[in-house]
Design a protein around this nucleic acid. Sequence first.
DNA 1: ATTCAGGATGTAAGGGCTTTCATGGGGATG
DNA 2: CATCCCCATGAAAGCCCTTACATCCTGAAT
Lengths: 355, 355
Amino acid sequence: MNGTVTLSGQEVDILLTIYDISKMAGVSIATVSRVLNESANVRPDTRRKVLEVMEQSGYTPNAFARGLGLNSMQTIGILCTDSSDLYLAKAVYYIEQDLRAGGYHSILCCTGYRLENKKSSLELLLRQKVDSVILVGSNFIEAEDADNQYIRDAAEQVPIMLLNAYFDHPNVFCSLCDDLGATQQAALSLIDSGIPDILYLYNSRSYSARKKLAGFQSACQLRGLPNADALQQFYSGSSADVEGICRFISSLHDGGLSFRAVIASDDVLATAAVKYARLRGQRIPSELSVIGYNNSILALCCEPELTSVDNRLEEISRQLVKTLIGTLNGIPMPAKTVFPGRLVQRGTTALPSPA
Amino acid sequence: MNGTVTLSGQEVDILLTIYDISKMAGVSIATVSRVLNESANVRPDTRRKVLEVMEQSGYTPNAFARGLGLNSMQTIGILCTDSSDLYLAKAVYYIEQDLRAGGYHSILCCTGYRLENKKSSLELLLRQKVDSVILVGSNFIEAEDADNQYIRDAAEQVPIMLLNAYFDHPNVFCSLCDDLGATQQAALSLIDSGIPDILYLYNSRSYSARKKLAGFQSACQLRGLPNADALQQFYSGSSADVEGICRFISSLHDGGLSFRAVIASDDVLATAAVKYARLRGQRIPSELSVIGYNNSILALCCEPELTSVDNRLEEISRQLVKTLIGTLNGIPMPAKTVFPGRLVQRGTTALPSPA
DNA sequence: ATTCAGGATGTAAGGGCTTTCATGGGGATG
DNA sequence: CATCCCCATGAAAGCCCTTACATCCTGAAT
């Protein structure tokens, strides 16, 4: 019993409740609720009448009360270490889009990289009664905290979705790119075209970063190359400091390291490698080949354009949401979906000789 | 009256309610609620006791019931045309961070660029009973729909916050960069260094895009240059298609347009201009100067590094949240805050001759 | 000692919805 | 025509909090 509302002339829609609607439609609140929830067992003409009243009066159900009753607000939590990261932002975008198309809301939470904050953010989301939490990016599977207890705990309450990371646990679902295979393929393509001295450059120790590194190592092993630690270099500075990365590569070279190709764990690192080559006067790709990762817009902005691994971000993101929605609807879903990566050849590598 | 919980041994925390806590602490639910809401008038030791029980039992208040009672869930809606856009993603990041620091949750909604979707997304958020909506990016202030009715409507319900756009209306608050002034300054710096034939390249008709264009035009006027429409070119293709932009610039040149500098409305366009110059064999900056906008990581990845306008994204984002939180707390806040832009000189422009 | 003000606490009435259970009305069946 | 069932509907009891109002108690003022 709230705002007075005239059906014909458009009056204010102040705080209409299910009671008002039931009165106007001449039915009980239970029936209105049934219409609202699209539950069966409402006669078509009754339904129509109720819908009509709701429409004309501009009624809009109170989300809190709804949540209270249903104990769910059709909301998914999205946890992301850093949504300003080009790669993660894109993932968040795809995910949010598909969630919304599926009738869910998304509440975003950027945690930063400290484990402590990840934990507390996750708890915060669960407190908000989200129906699931999506962990965007492989930074949530810690190497150090091997048991990932905070994820186990969360999985007790709601399904936990992992983008581009894998963790074998009940109620945890994963959608990821085969980063190991993709990096291996990238390395093999260089080795087999006659470039065995490859510098592998990375700047993260996340799950997928570890896989990429393993892929590089396995390629070396496959071809019987010495597993030279010196050729696997971790860059610990800011990942946006192109200058700094450039200097880092220079220092490696000046330290006596010799390499004729660079495989980088992301496109920024690769771009910096290209820049390094230009500064040193090395020609690309004849004197230095470069392969990036993520196939982002940076690959296109680079000069020459960057050969880069496409890690199927869109596919794995959309698949993850598909899996989630299925799970929430009680449909059994695979706990793990893997997409192969794809090496996109561009100007920083010589085209592979036709077989 | 729910899950049995032993205070000492750690039992399950299934569905504890305020009643359980009140019983355990030997107080009434009202008192527990007061502690929860940090309202005054609770004796310190009572408060301590309640907090202790809550702590030990792992109680966590039900967000829905809370929302129902308070008619607010401390949640802010973030509306964004495209969170995968480098620029917007960064803004979302800063905003989310500060909101969370201020005790608010953020629910994200990507609308795409169609007005219809923007409207419906905004309504959706209001239905969710958010305490305010932040419109990220100047794409929400339409040129065509000059009255911006959907924003007016929303402002009736909650404060509406505009990032990098301005709309003069009660309960609408704006934080923006002086894009007009910044672009004017960029253009003047080129003109005054002896380059009057500047191509202005843009790819959006958003509020800020219009301001930038106006800035360019006013610079031309100030220096008495003919306002050649041909030198203001709108690129309508995909904003990520670097190749396409390159071709577009080439076609302008081939069409007989002559220019010795390019000012672009974002860094992707500018990067493409640099690429164009390289393809044509033009030296940068001696034969072609280029100025980008946003001062993003693209500016650093470019070779040579891009001179670009820093539009103070972090500052305007944080200011917006500050204004919002003040407003929500009943503190009078300025409806409009403007930050000046800043031209960051790098390799694509000749250093200004020392005055 | 008596009164009073005011702070600390408790009681109970919502807040708007969902859902169980009971009821009534038809159609199908015998 | 009587019986049975099932479907559509309604009444009412939650869901878990907040908060206005009532109550009690304390120390200060007289």
